[in-house]
Computed example of a mutant assay.
Amino acid sequence: MDKEEVIEKKEIKELLELNEELENYFRNTIIPQLFIDANLVLRKFSPPANMHFKLTKEDIGKSTHDIPSLANLPGLIDSIKEVISSNEDIEKEIQTNDKRWFQMNLLPYIIRKQNITNGAVITFVDITERIVDKQVIEKINADHETFIYSVSHDFRGPLTNLVLLIDLLKAAINKKDKEETKLLLETMYRSAQSMVTIINELTDLAKNGIDPQDKPEEVSIEQILESVKFTLKNQIFQSHAKITTNFEVKTLLFSRKNLRSIMYNLLSNAIKFTAEEKTPEICIRTDKLEEYTLLSVEDNGVGIEPEKQKDIFAIFERLKPHIEGTGVGLFIVDKMVKNQGGRIEVNSKLGEGTTFTIYLKNEY
C-alpha cells in the first residue's frame, strides 16, 4: 500500500468518525437544528426539528426548495446563501405559518482542511412567548401613554379657564360688582362640571379600556348590551333613547372586556350626538358573513360631515367641539377591533344619522 492510499484511508476514517459524531449530536440535541449543504440539500435534522417542521427521513437528500415546510420559512434560503458566501454567522427572528416566532441562528459549516464552507447549521429557538410578552408590554405602555396624554390634554382647557375666571372674579369682588360676580361664579361652576364630565369619561375608558391579554371567547352580545345599558341608564333615561336590536348572530368570538368597551363607546356616542329636538333612536344588529360577523350600531343623530369621516378614528379627534368628550373613544374602539384582526367602517349623512359597522373575524 503506497503512501497516498494510506493518507486517503486515514482521511476516510476521519470523515466517518466526524460523521458519526455529527449524527450523535443531531440525534441527541433537544434543539431544532438542520444541516443544509452548499447545494441547499438537507443532510441532517434533529428530532425536535422533525416535530416543528414535519420532516421525515425521506426529506434527507432533497433540495430545500422541494421541502414546503423549509421553503416557506421566511428568509431561510437567502440566509443560507449569505452564510456560505460570507463565512459569517447570521441571527434573525422569523415567524412561521402557524404564527410561532423563532430566533434563527445560522453558522457556516466549514471543512477546515480544504478551507471551504460546505453548508450551514441552522438552530431554531422558540421565542413565541417572549415576543407575545413584548407585544403585550408595548400595548400596555402605548395605552398608558394614550391615557396620560388624554388626561393632560383634556384638563388643560378647563383649568386654564378656571385660572382666568378666578382672576376676573377677584377684580369683580374688588369692584363690588354683584352681577358680574354672580355671572363669573356660574361660569366657574360650568367649567368645574366640565372637568367632572371629563374625569367620569376618562374613568370609564380606564375601566373599560383595552386589555391586550384578553383572549377571544364566545360572548353573548345580548348580555354585553344589557351590561352597557345598565352603565348608561342615566343617559338613556334623560334622553328617552329608544334602543332596538336584531341579532342574527347571538354570540361573538371576541374579548369580553373589549367588546363591552366597544359597545359602551358606540352606544354612548349615539346618545350624545343626537340633535336636541330629537329622541335618540338606536338600532344594534349582527349579521353573519363567510369570514366575518358584522356588528352594527345605527343612530338618527346629527351625522358626520363627509370631510371628517376619514379622521374620526384619530386620537383626540372631536366630532363636535361644543360637546364634551375626551376624543379618544373611537380611537380606542378602532384599536381594539384591529388588534383582533377586524376592521370598522362608518356610513353617515349629515342631519340624518350614522352607522358604525364592525367586522369581527369568525376564526382566530
Rank of each mutant, 00 (worst) to 15 (best):
T117V: 15
D154I: 01
I137Y: 13
L165G: 02
F155G: 03
R130S: 14
L169R: 02
V121C: 11
S152K: 05
K139R: 13
N141H: 12
V163W: 03
T146N: 04
I166Q: 04
I127F: 05
V132F: 14
F124T: 10
T146L: 11
L164H: 05
T160H: 08
I140S: 04
P158D: 05
R156H: 06
L164D: 00
V151D: 00
A120I: 10
V163M: 05
I166G: 02
Q135Y: 15
A120L: 11
R130D: 11
I127P: 08
N161A: 10
V136R: 13
A171W: 01
Q135K: 15
I116H: 14
V136I: 15
S150M: 01
G157K: 13
A142R: 08
L164I: 10
P158K: 02
L162N: 00
I122P: 07
A142Y: 09
K134F: 14
I140T: 06
D133K: 15
K170L: 06
D143E: 07
R156E: 11
Y149K: 07
N118G: 14
S150E: 00
G119A: 10
V125H: 12
Y149N: 03
S150T: 10
T128N: 11
R156Q: 07
R156F: 09
V132D: 11
E145R: 07
R130I: 13
P158W: 03
F124Q: 11
V151Y: 02
S150Y: 03
Y149H: 05
F124R: 09
L169V: 04
D126N: 15
H144M: 05
L169S: 04
N118Y: 10
D133H: 14
I131R: 13
V136S: 08
T160G: 08
D133S: 15
L169A: 03
K134W: 12
V136T: 14
E145C: 00
E138Y: 14
H144L: 12
F124W: 12
Y149D: 07
I131T: 08
E145Q: 10
E129Q: 15
I116R: 15
D167W: 03
A120Y: 06
F155S: 03
D143S: 05
H153I: 03
V125I: 15
D126I: 09
N161H: 09
D126C: 08
T123A: 15
T160I: 04
I116Q: 15
V136H: 13
V163T: 06
K139Q: 08
E145Y: 09
V163K: 08
I131F: 08
I166E: 04
L159D: 02
Y149T: 07
D154G: 01
T117C: 15
D167I: 06
V125P: 01
A120R: 06
V121P: 05
I131N: 06
G157S: 09
D154H: 01
F124S: 08
I140P: 01
A120H: 09
Y149A: 06
